[in-house]
Design a protein around this nucleic acid. Sequence first.
DNA 1: CGGGCATGTCATCATGTGATGACATCGTCC
DNA 2: GGACGATGTCATCACATGATGACATGCCCG
Lengths: 211, 211
Amino acid sequence: MTEAATGADGAAVADDGRPEPATPRRRDAARSRELLLRAAAELFADRGFDRTTIREIGERAGVDPALIARYFGGKTQLYLATTRLELGDSAPADLLDEERLRTLVERVTRRGPGPSFQAAVLPGDNTEVQQAARTYLHERLVEPLYQRFAAEQVDRPRLRAEIATAAFAGIILARSGGAFAELAEAGPEELLPLLHDLLAASRQPPDDLTT
Amino acid sequence: MTEAATGADGAAVADDGRPEPATPRRRDAARSRELLLRAAAELFADRGFDRTTIREIGERAGVDPALIARYFGGKTQLYLATTRLELGDSAPADLLDEERLRTLVERVTRRGPGPSFQAAVLPGDNTEVQQAARTYLHERLVEPLYQRFAAEQVDRPRLRAEIATAAFAGIILARSGGAFAELAEAGPEELLPLLHDLLAASRQPPDDLTT
DNA sequence: CGGGCATGTCATCATGTGATGACATCGTCC
DNA sequence: GGACGATGTCATCACATGATGACATGCCCG
């Protein structure tokens, strides 16, 4: 997963004609920054903020952890940068849109859940970190759902949107968390219909067969 | 919530005829143990294992933290004791049973989510701690649901049970986590029908109105 | 080619935390 | 009443972790 080191932001990559200066760019701040950012994104995603140490990040990135302070200001700011990175595509469709759901699930399958999901669920000590992640979560998931529900005149639209988002976050996190065997193994194809049904129920009560 | 200090384990309580020695039991190991256990249960429940320090526990309990080592062996064992305590009532009905759901939600509303819920969702470093919490979660929530689904001949019963449990955990945690305003304020009465509908959908797909 | 800044490396500090053991004090039992 | 164990208090250790600064070295510019 960490195979390609080339650009994505392209800041330091010599994307001009020359294939590369013979010197393999030993000292390249942009590259170091990028490597740190990626390593951090991965680690934060599947271990959370607290349980990730800057030494681990540095080790995975192959960069001295001290540079985190230099380039980002500290672990916290690195996390925030990670969160912004997580935005990925910027199509704020809601979770009931099948396309959107598929995209999200597939991305999460590949890259692990973003920090935001953990922020949804973890007890927050209202640090700047949590705040950022939560804001992101609202903008990207809750709000679109709320818009839909409101438009559909559903009762308690915001509450329903929050519940659906929380449920989704729980499932996504549980999937990569390792507590549930079958869920962890289930691929997007198996998951998607079940997820969709579950989320759809937050708007439309099922037939309510007996209990 | 910490009103009654009497027994529960009854180790040191003078359960013979005499009502109580006039001396208010200044030095009472059983009482200290109990206080620690309760304080720990509360803190673990709403801050998680890592973010709870033994000094906090001691402070809340009004007991010196060093006694944790003496009475439980360490923070980890204290956590495990807490998990066992969490078992509470021992009626393993599944989440689709309205009675059961109500009981659970109300208890969680009062006492906060148990450590198990966090274990469901947090990335696990397979410590003894996580294992215990997960085992509990399976026995209490997943398995009953699985039994029901299997009996009902639902497709992929185990996967569905895990998904429903994960969704439930997500909602419960998010509710007390503080990331969602309306969800946090919603009382059991508002929550229950929505929760029930959502969970029921894990077994019975809704009518699937368009997308 | 030489100065100066950017980049990287390393040692070290400050803090928080779990654990431990020495010591004090209470309570019970003979 | 006194001895001995149980109980509680305190200081302190060991370790992990984030942060910081001193230093070395590469790189670009003139």
